[in-house]
Design a protein around this nucleic acid. Structure first.
Lengths: 339, 339
DNA sequence: GGTTAGCAGTCAAACACGTTGAGTGCTAAC
DNA sequence: GTTAGCACTCAACGTGTTTGACTGCTAACC
């Protein structure tokens, strides 16, 4: 059933008021603040109708109304006005990304931090290990007698490195030779190619066989390894009155500090949408039910960079959150692709 | 004034009981649990004496006794029995350090995590940028047309890297030549040497002047840059009843997430002791006063690795904490120096 | 002198109760 | 369809009251 325009308007006011104040909204406050041409009794009957439809509920008979999960969903999809970020906020985002755009780790951390700061919510991030990422540059660098650093630069121009053990008899010359071969073999290939291809290292590799096997392992590791999870602004959750309860806080923290659970929260169920809003975390055990997660996946030139998002009370400022996620994504993608 | 043996014994029991239970200890519970050959009235008069001396206090007249800051100090310096870690715990520590002993960042994180896990407290770490650290290996590695990675291996065999911008006309050959010069100039030198020495790059450096200046800047940066701060187990604080109060939690979080404040908390006031115990964080503004910090500085071969510690309620298990810090340090230093 | 039993005193915590006021639903009139 | 008026509900708050876990004190005892 389609809601009348007035019902929509009232529902929108209730949700946005409640998001702002965290207090059940009463018919009186609505007529005083927004609907000055209506009496509270009229609004009351509309509210009763909306409650009948499942969009509102009362904590107790003599309290105002609180939005239901369905109301939030409708609010996000239909009723909400997306925020515009202020010039200051946009400048702040840009400033953050001016430095350190080489180190993946740094970029992710900074991104998560910006998002957390601007939304006043705890932010989450998982790095994507995109199989279709192409290798642009690869090289071994000996840093101690029995160890070398494998440095990989990909499409997105972000650095990755890992340590490779060397056998004792690996001379510097042979590392140089190995580097030539490495370049020939892997530059221009995607991680997927490498995983699928079955390298049979013939006699020309004789001298480097063990090193090459380790390099291939390391490359495969980038794809199969469990994703990195970053958490920023854990303290932000304390600002929200719904988490004044210690038990809820504990639940929240215990989920948010567990890698696999976070990955689960940020998954977008295969749907290919830019911004993913999960209202009410039903189905996520251990999670307090009045939690929402809003996430976005960023990519550069078709290669996924990672998924970023925020987690907080269902009563969060979706307009602002969506605006922040969109803008951070836009700016980040811009900077990374124009290097 | 020196305490009688019995007073010491009773004070020790009160502190350890309170640490365990978080409940003011009564004369009755002491005679029931530990001092079965004394009556509660006797203990009561001893408690009254200890209160007179400033070691104990009562939350209210009809409550048991709670240790004062002075009592904790005496407990740590004189009365406490240091814990022995279980075989399982020792194995757990060793296992953690088996991998990733090359990447500084990883080592620090893991160390902080182990400490947090074993003590059930929030752990803090600051990396030391020790001026006296010697450079073992240094090399530039081009990873994109206008950028190179500067890789430095030090005495402690831990990797450090930073990105150096390259001018457009820097050929690969010239990078190779620069690397030869870099090695000649910096290997065997300490960061201190480099900071103090005034490099006047004569005509033989003509081609690399700009790169060298950048490298020198990067090297100096390692020393002057503000230290990295790591935080682990922030959620652990929720387990302690003294932080059931939201305001305290906020204060705690706001300090613990601020770099400069953490560095301050972990500073050892120039005193050259292995384990530093700060009981009651008086003088640290914004910090709830009933906080303690226990920290230790780890080093390998005379080079400081960093300072690690825990922060939590004054009522923490000092015996356990000290044992964990000592053992983690021993094992870490061992592993790193025997590579 | 140190130790103990007994007893009066204190006070937080828990519970019950009354009051208040912000909110509602319903109804009758406009 | 809208509104004023009124009875009703119930969380929040403040005020007793009771309970029991402590203590300090005192007088007797070893």
């Amino acid at each position: 059933m389609e809601l009348s325009d007035r019902k929509k308007k009232i529902l929108q006011l209730v949700v946005s008021d409640y998001i702002e104040t965290a207090v059940p909204v009463s018919s009186k406050s609505l007529t005083e603040k927004h609907l000055t041409n209506l009496s509270s009794a009229t609004v009351r009957s509309e509210l009763a109708a909306l409650e009948e439809l499942g969009y509102l509920s009362q904590p107790h008979t003599s309290a105002g109304r609180v939005p239901s999960i369905d109301a939030y969903k409708l609010y996000v999809s239909d009723l909400m006005v997306k925020d515009n970020l202020s010039v200051n906020e946009l400048e702040y985002i840009k400033k953050i990304f001016l430095e350190n755009t080489n180190d993946v780790e740094q970029v992710i951390k900074q991104t998560a931090k910006v998002i957390s700061e601007l939304t006043s919510l705890t932010s989450l991030a998982v790095t994507s290990h995109d199989e279709s990422e192409k290798i642009n540059n690869i090289k071994l660098f000996r840093f101690k007698p029995d160890g070398a650093l494998l440095i990989i630069v990909t499409d997105t121009k972000l650095l990755k490195d890992s340590v490779i053990e060397l056998s004792q008899d690996m001379s510097d010359d042979r590392i140089d030779e190995a580097n030539v071969l490495l370049e020939r073999m892997f530059v221009g290939k995607t991680f997927k190619d490498i995983c699928n291809y079955n390298y049979n290292l013939d006699e020309s590799f004789e001298n480097y066989k063990s090193v090459f096997l380790k390099v291939i392992d390391a490359l495969k590791d980038y794809v199969t390894t469990t994703d990195d999870v970053i958490l920023e602004g854990q303290d932000k959750i304390l600002q929200h009155p719904e988490y004044a309860d210690l038990e809820k806080l504990k639940k929240f923290m215990s989920v948010v500090t567990k890698k696999d659970k976070v990955i689960n929260l940020l998954s977008n169920d295969g749907r290919d949408i830019k911004i993913n809003v999960k209202i009410g975390t039903e189905g996520y055990e251990e999670m307090p039910s009045d939690c929402s997660v809003v996430s976005a996946t960023y990519s550069v030139g078709g290669v996924k960079l990672g998924t970023y998002g925020v987690i907080g009370p269902v009563r969060m400022d979706y307009g602002k959150v969506v605006a922040v996620l969109e803008n951070v994504g836009k700016i980040l993608e811009n900077i990374l692709s124009n290097r």
